[in-house]
Design a binder for these strands. Structure first.
Lengths: 165, 165
DNA sequence: CCCGAATCGTTGAAAATGTCAATGTTTGAG
DNA sequence: CTCAAACATTGACATTTTCAACGATTCGGG
């Protein structure tokens, strides 16, 4: 049996960071949120990477495919990215022919972002890959907890003050 | 009453990004996770900023205060940061006198990171601030949902494959 | 109609972060 | 003793973040 306070110096720290889970950091919901996010983000990035995308560009593509015709300011706010980053992301997607900017009918300042046919195709494949990756990330949860998590996160993500904190 | 398909061009997109929540992106748990994280991270950074810290350095400080005497490799793994980033973070904290490196008794390769008295003081204040900030972030949830969220996130954050994904 | 403030997309620069390879020191196995 | 591996560190490089400024356009008021 394992001693609670190991006498052997070599065995003291063993290979475990598990004891750190008991600290205030390990008990902090915001930290857990960040860590869970880092893990799923890495998995998602690996998944869409096969399609020459990152999570960022994949999100923009998905919104372009949606048919909601978001403009760049809306993408910026929804994805919580600086407008200049949206420009860069769309530039890249447009160069690849997955997306195009369309002038808004009623306001010549604004561009609306829509997907091309090829964009829809790439999206379909990438979406399948991310869903597989996510399924694996969340495999430790049962269906009920998955639903709960989604509901709770939606409450947090859409909370007032999400834009101007 | 509001028309579902507004005829006025000016009113079409209004000021709402709300319609984007109905897209596949808005339904994606991983996206919700990322967005909720971004929001709480921003709030936490604002909170600890008053103490000259960021969430990163605050986390390192908290682990140094914990008494668990983590070494740098452990910090790297637990916080999911590159070892070189840990070096930079500790350098800064050490320069400010909040933390110091102690040679490990049993292994001269490893440094153990411990807090100074001043580090403990600063931590106490910063922790209070972050707890206030978090309380506000999670104010939209009742106690039960807060517990659920924490439990679920812990499952995800500590899942196997969290280190080598 | 005309002016000024505000919005949208864009550009560019600076700071912060992330990623990776290489190194010196030390340990542990054989 | 020798060799491979682990730890902390350094330095280089790419990516991301953050800001300020700009031209074009819209909108509200006078």
């Amino acid at each position: 049996m394992r001693n609670t306070s190991p006498s052997s110096p070599a065995a003291r720290q063993a290979e475990g960071i598990d004891r750190l889970w008991g600290t205030s950091v390990g008990e902090d919901t915001a930290f857990l949120l960040a860590r869970a996010n880092a893990i799923t983000l890495a998995a998602a990035n690996a998944a869409v990477g096969a399609f020459g995308l990152k999570v960022r560009s994949y999100s923009v593509l998905a919104l372009a495919v949606s048919g909601e015709r978001p403009n760049q300011r809306e993408l910026s706010e929804f994805l919580r990215l600086d407008p200049s980053q949206i420009v860069a992301l769309i530039d890249e997607l447009e160069k690849r022919g997955l997306v195009r900017r369309e002038p808004d009918a009623g306001d010549r300042r604004v561009n609306v972002v829509v997907a091309t046919d090829e964009g829809r195709e790439v999206y379909a494949g990438a979406r399948e890959a991310t869903e597989r990756a996510e399924a694996e990330c969340f495999s430790a949860l049962d269906d009920e907890d998955r639903d709960r998590l989604k509901t709770i996160l939606r409450t947090l993500a859409a909370a007032p003050g999400a834009s101007a904190g």
